[in-house]
Design a protein around this nucleic acid. Structure first.
Lengths: 239, 239
DNA sequence: ACAAAAGTGTTGTGTCTACACCCATGG
DNA sequence: CCATGGGTGTAGACACAACACTTTTGT
């Protein structure tokens, strides 16, 4: 590390890109913006933007998240650094190094679509949807990471509203992993983990209109899941 | 993302920092360099350096690793992106965003100490050792990450030479986690995981001078560990 | 003979899976 | 009364921790 001359090299730009995931109608959705200008004008892309001169990547990501979703209180939301993408040809205009983040949201207010994007929308997660730049790759990495995190962290509650039923929590796992889980076993597993969830006394809610009203729970104080809740059939278990 | 004017903002510098870990004499060691100039002159720091104009962070990390360790064949080594550190005051000279990597080495040749560093050395891992910049934090994050990876990946073999005994492999876990493991159970666990290790037919080696010669194994083709090998006593299991 | 390290066996405890079954509500 | 979703119980399979025991080497 020498580099006293700030302008010795071609300058690097540093941006953040956000993979914002939510659940709408039991389907995984992603926040995407339609690009207003070249390159990739008219294409869908992950929201993001440049770091301001005295911002950390985390701060920039939270600011962008607030701007793009129009949420007032973005302070409590789960935001996590995914990884950094630094291929020299990511952006045809100049050298851009991008720090990617994943954000998990419970409810899904329609985004404002402000800023330099033509529009911002929630679209169903589809690994085959073409995106601008290397955003397909980033989104796939985010999905894989979130799926893995569900196994050994209490992250699933970040997809749920403040009070939720165990069925809704199970839906998070089933939707993200794309598998069906056994309800009795899931229930026991969650309740057996200390401080994963805590019951809301007396409260209940009708979920699908029909059926028995379900008890409500709040996210507990636990952050890690020991032992983990492994997703089945990753070819690990032979008959 | 607008930013057509490359020089609109104060320029960012992008660097890589490496947390290079190895095992020497059953102790975790880190590759550190002594800084030759201000700031932090004379202090220990993680090796690293600037991205060249057309280098990805991964390429730069591998290049720096080769330069600092003096290893000829650095292509097969385990190198993994840790996370990116972007606090606005990380470096007093200018705005530096650093992509940190962890590298795991089996044997430990003495480093060359070339480049702009006063010297490069293997030093025992010590979370309390003061380091330049925010490198203490980076190193702690790397240790935590590697410890976690051992649980559900086959990463441990990256610390071992091409042929190793199960005792040596167990030493990796015990050294990184700082706990003792039951040898019979560890052995069964490893051998029960398909393709974690494969035996070298007929080969054996004396480990500590005394004792029965141990059979030799090679790293297998597996990359994930299902089910995981959880480290004990993380306050998860009561009595 | 003894110490040290590798390797095998066994047994109890716990956890997970897979189901069968009951409860409450809307149509 | 039936469909739908919430919630409880239970038996077999499996995995794991703990520890006793045997084997092979060096001193």
């Amino acid at each position: 590390m020498q580099g006293y001359d700030k302008y010795a090299f071609e300058p690097f730009a540093v941006t953040v890109d956000l993979a914002v995931l939510t659940l709408r109608a039991d389907t995984l959705h992603v926040l995407l913006v339609e690009r207003g200008q070249e390159p990739y004008a008219g294409q869908w892309a992950l929201p993001g933007g440049f770091l301001l001169p005295r911002e950390s990547a985390e701060t920039a990501a939270r600011r962008e998240l607030a701007e793009e979703t129009g949420l007032s209180d973005v302070s409590g939301l789960h935001l996590e650094q995914l990884r950094t993408y630094s291929g020299p040809d990511r952006d045809p205009r100049m050298r851009v190094v991008s720090v990617a983040f994943t954000a998990l949201l419970p409810d899904a207010p329609e985004p404002h679509g402000g800023g330099d994007a033509a529009q911002a929308r929630w679209l169903p997660y589809d690994p085959a949807r073409p995106l601008a730049f290397d955003h397909e790759r980033i989104l796939a990495d985010a999905h894989e990471r979130v799926g893995g995190q569900l196994e050994y962290s209490c992250l699933a509650t970040a997809f749920c509203p403040p009070e939720f039923t165990l069925g809704e929590l199970q839906n998070v796992y089933e939707t993200v992993w794309g598998v069906a889980l056994d309800r009795p076993n899931f229930r026991r597993k969650v309740l057996a983990t200390p401080d994963f969830v805590e019951p809301v006394p007396g409260a209940a809610r009708l979920t699908g209109g029909r059926g028995k009203p379900a008890a409500l729970y709040r996210a507990g104080t636990a952050t890690a899941l020991h032992p983990p809740l492994l997703r089945p059939s990753r070819e690990g278990r032979p008959a």
